[in-house]
Nucleic acid binder design. Sequence first.
DNA 1: GGTGAATAGGAATTCAAG
DNA 2: CTTGAATTCCTATTCACC
Lengths: 50, 50
Amino acid sequence: MKSRRQSVILEIVDGRAVSSQEQLRTLLKEQGIDATQATLSRDIRDLGLV
Amino acid sequence: MKSRRQSVILEIVDGRAVSSQEQLRTLLKEQGIDATQATLSRDIRDLGLV
DNA sequence: GGTGAATAGGAATTCAAG
DNA sequence: CTTGAATTCCTATTCACC
């Protein structure tokens, strides 16, 4: 689910500095969320993140 | 010459918004300066540009 | 020390497909 | 409308070479 994934992304980014989409991918996986780099790229754009 | 090239880069960037190193490369060429993407990447780092 | 060619690396976009 | 795989695009780095 997109909104769930995006809210977890915001939590992760809020807590620590994430330096790459692949790292974010790993952190999301630890939270039980699987997504590809393409999807994370879109989420980051949608959320207005750097 | 490196310093000459870098000062022209600063002039170009000051005037307009440059969105890629290839575009900068083209603009430099119009000024008679030839350089590769690798060199421009180093110049941008040296000049502290984004 | 500065440079270009080639390569690696990361991110955005395309192209089906669900 | 959302996604993953593949591709494309852009930048940084490596590896000679001068």
